[in-house]
Design a protein around this nucleic acid. Structure first.
Lengths: 341, 341
DNA sequence: TGTTATTATGAAATCGATATCAGAAAGCGA
DNA sequence: TCGCTTTCTGATATCGATTTCATAATAACA
């Protein structure tokens, strides 16, 4: 591996000062055509590529942003990540993605890492499992950095947030089921600690109350496919043939809806003839299930984009909106059918 | 935002030199218990977190690795990314992930970016669409960096590679179809330029030849779900009722298999009664399709892990295996049925 | 007790860029 | 031609760590 060439090498070869080389690399228009050419050819000859590490120091910015999500293998997040990456790319930022696995401890560790790496800002999906109060150390770190929250709010923090109208989405999902004639609607709920889940649960309950429906039932599956699968496998046989049997399910995300679908296939329960299911998220493949899943679509890619835009404005101290709430959309497919009585 | 404290601040507060603080942070065992304590409490008091940017310069390493994949929203890669991240985390590296969208031009640009950011090494899934010869500039960049290839080989480059036995996997998939009595097997192929696709195609052809089957047919869908869907939607009606009609399909990846499945649902063609389908990859959700997809499993997470381990050994100049080929596994589910002629 | 190792610390150079400031050269109006 | 901008370039300090080398203090040994 041959030695990397530096700005000094280029300067020497071109017969100019390092400052001039720096100018040619960063603001070519302010240097005379003539010198610019000389430098350019020296750059090419040495195949010089500037060392951004060195550049970052005096500049006091890295053009990195950190992205903390629960888990990249959770398909919900990959579109979001891509949205973040694409906008970053456009503005010359790079993204450092880490997985908190919804653990507060990991979240804290990564925040420290990101700080240590001096990222210009962080986009954070707060970890779901909150052991206790927000630790002091983490909170003070958060205050030192440019932060934009995404997807989940966090009590006692006033960072800008980009989220989806979870309440409204859930509300419209349940309203839709009611409109289709369902009166016994089970709720497959997500991680209890998360604001997201609380809001969706709120939408569920509000829609029921508004329609004077007293029947309600919740099963918790932490937003996870296999947990939902297990819960249904356990629960359904118990209530089969009783009047506890729901005619519809509102799942707080598609993953759980798909888990339920899988369980029903195995239990030989027909969807939507025997139970209707509606999900939340509209993840990829939710249109490839059998039957294709009716769901509430979230604009995940857009969320990622908005979050970065906000963050970049925050970094460059422009005016920003503190609260961006995107709307959901009902996607009618085939997992919900009309139920008479 | 209050001023960040530096190693000098800590040194002053603790009444020692910056060198000593540096030692406490990096090799505490070589400094006297007494001074270590003084420094530690100064660190805590100022809540000092070292600036890794500054540290990287004299050290000449960044503890970053770059990861170039075609597209993070392609679900096949998320497990791989996670494998990379988890091992990196263990060894104190951070990962910079970028999407080439299978474009050679983007790949080149990102390589340059990664070089500029002075990552310690790069894990690269070579872009599928190769316009022409590998550009000189990119090649010389590759030679300057520590590179580990993943998934796809590249002609005329001798970097270590971690891949899957594509030939063997495809071969066993087609052998399995033959064993189930199928004699007309269509191949849904991926991006032609990729070695991966060539190998899988090779496995398909070899299995046929070995069984003295002359019937063959290929449709190309670039590894993409929607392309596969379209191809089937166009092709099937044309050949319906002719003896061109295949009884089974070997798709070069699950995405295309799922696209085909979707088309067949729409065309009211029963799977597996009328056509059997076998995929490749075993992506998440391939067990949630209808019917659950029989497929060839790739150990993607493991591939990511192996790639990083190799890269880290390469970086630290340890001995490495130049060629790591992982085995596939046939996952029998319900999309293939026996066919008695 | 004098000599040599060992351990613990500090001083100063260094990594490779940027940024500030100053000065030379060129352009321009009177 | 003189003075004043404007344009272009270079010298030098700086960012915040690490690293090398030197030295003081202490321990070990003959």
């Amino acid at each position: 591996m041959k030695k990397k060439s530096t700005i000094y090498d280029v300067a020497k070869k071109a017969g100019v000062s390092p400052s001039t080389v720096s100018r040619v690399m960063n603001a070519p228009e302010i240097v005379a055509e003539n010198t610019r050419q000389k430098v350019a050819s020296a750059v090419k000859e040495l195949s010089y590529i500037p060392n951004m590490i060195a550049a970052n120091m005096p500049r006091k910015r890295t053009n990195y942003i950190g992205l903390i999500i629960p888990d990249i293998t959770n398909i919900f997040f990959s579109n979001l990540v891509r949205g973040v990456q694409d906008v970053c790319e456009k503005y010359g930022y790079s993204v450092l993605v880490v997985n908190s696995d919804d653990s507060q401890e990991k979240e804290g560790r990564y925040l420290k890492l990101l700080y240590s790496r001096r990222v210009d800002g962080v986009i954070l999906t707060v970890a779901g499992y909150q052991e206790e109060e927000f630790p002091e150390e983490e909170l003070s770190l958060l205050k030192k950095m440019n932060i934009v929250l995404i997807d989940r709010e966090i009590n006692g923090m006033t960072a800008p947030i980009v989220k989806v109208n979870n309440f409204g989405g859930a509300y419209s999902a349940v309203k839709y089921l009611l409109k289709m004639g369902h009166k016994k609607i089970l709720h497959l709920a997500g991680i209890e600690g998360t604001k997201t889940n609380q809001e969706r649960r709120g939408g569920y309950l509000s829609a029921l109350i508004e329609s004077h429906i007293n029947w309600k039932k919740e099963l918790n599956a932490d937003f996870r496919l296999d947990a939902a699968y297990q819960k249904i496998m356990n629960y359904w046989p118990q209530i089969k043939n009783s009047d506890e049997l729901p005619t519809a399910i509102f799942a707080a995300n598609d993953l759980m809806a798909i888990g339920a679908l899988k369980a029903f296939t195995q239990l030989k329960v027909q969807v939507p003839e025997e139970v209707s299911i509606i999900g939340f998220d509209n993840i990829p493949f939710s249109d490839c299930t059998h039957p294709p899943l009716t769901t509430i679509a979230q604009p995940t890619y857009l969320m990622g984009q908005r979050a970065v835009e906000t963050l970049i404005n925050l970094i460059s101290k422009k005016r920003i909106k503190k609260f961006i709430e995107l709307e959901t959309e009902l996607i009618e497919r085939d997992s919900v059918s009309r139920r008479e009585v």
